[in-house]
Design a binder for these strands. Structure first.
Length: 229
DNA sequence: AAGCCGCCCAACCGCTCTTCG
DNA sequence: ACGAAGAGCGGTTGGGCGGCT
């Protein structure tokens, strides 16, 4: 027996949101908050939408202080660095980019940065005559670092950051990282990766402490340094 | 001008995790 | 301790749009 659906799909509107629906959702949440129950929210407002859909709309589009438009070079660097360190933990990566949502980051990665990364790597591999494409694992999925909830649950990295234990990096990492590093040997790549991982741990630990102490705030977010390319 | 193609973004789907009774 | 419900997350899809032929 499968899991029960979160809402009655027959009686729920799907597809793009109308300005009227946006206005209803926005004004209600600004006045009353979410009440901690997204499933009940559309009923209260009178929207024929799934609670999950409301949450998504609010988080990705209606929420205040969202940054729209093109990603800066600095943001690109941050995304690439974090992706190299923790894989496709978009919510974690987005938390380091004030005003950006996980969906934004994910879309940006899939649309641009992935190609940028793979493009650079392809060039490098070509030059070195790397018949494996230089990437350990699937050529379409080059960054399974620490990703996969069963094998190496993403929370491990957060826990490592919060508790100061060391991180584990699979042997795939140097191949993946190399496009974002200066021309180097494997040893330099590993050293650079270690620095990166340490920095990430510090950042995540810092942000975690600040969030606990003062609540989430843009000022409290510590950002990684731009990549030296 | 029209058709094709690729890019990009909003939204959906299905899964796991967390919380609560 | 256990199960159900809700929340959150990452992967995927579909459609609008602009550029190219």
């Amino acid at each position: 027996m499968g899991r029960a659906p979160c809402c009655d799909k027959a009686n729920v509107k799907r597809g793009p949101w109308s300005p009227d629906e946006d206005a209803k959702l926005k004004s209600y949440i600004e006045l009353h908050g979410t009440g901690g129950n997204w499933i009940a929210l559309p009923l209260k407002i009178g929207l024929k939408r799934c609670g999950k859909s409301c949450r998504l709309r609010w988080m990705n589009y209606l929420r205040p202080n969202l940054k729209r438009g093109a990603f800066s070079e600095e943001e690109d660097d941050i995304i690439c660095r974090l992706f190299v360190s923790i894989g496709s933990r978009w919510s974690v990566i987005a938390s380091q980019l004030p005003g950006r949502t996980d969906n934004d980051v994910k879309n940006h990665w899939n649309a641009r940065l992935k190609k940028k990364l793979l493009g650079k790597h392809a060039k490098g591999a070509e030059a070195k005559g790397d018949d494996n494409g230089g990437i350990t694992g699937s050529p379409q999925q080059p960054a399974p670092i620490g990703h996969g909830r069963n094998e190496l649950d993403g929370r491990f990295y957060i826990d490592a950051a919060n508790h100061g234990s060391s991180s584990v990096m699979p042997s795939t990492v140097p191949c993946l990282v190399s496009p974002w590093l200066p021309e180097d040997s494997g040893g330099q790549a590993l050293q650079c990766l270690n620095d990166l991982t340490t920095e990430l741990d510090e950042i995540l630990r810092f942000n975690s402490l600040m969030t606990v102490a003062t609540g989430p705030s843009e000022e409290n977010v510590m950002k990684p340094k731009p990549l030296g390319r």
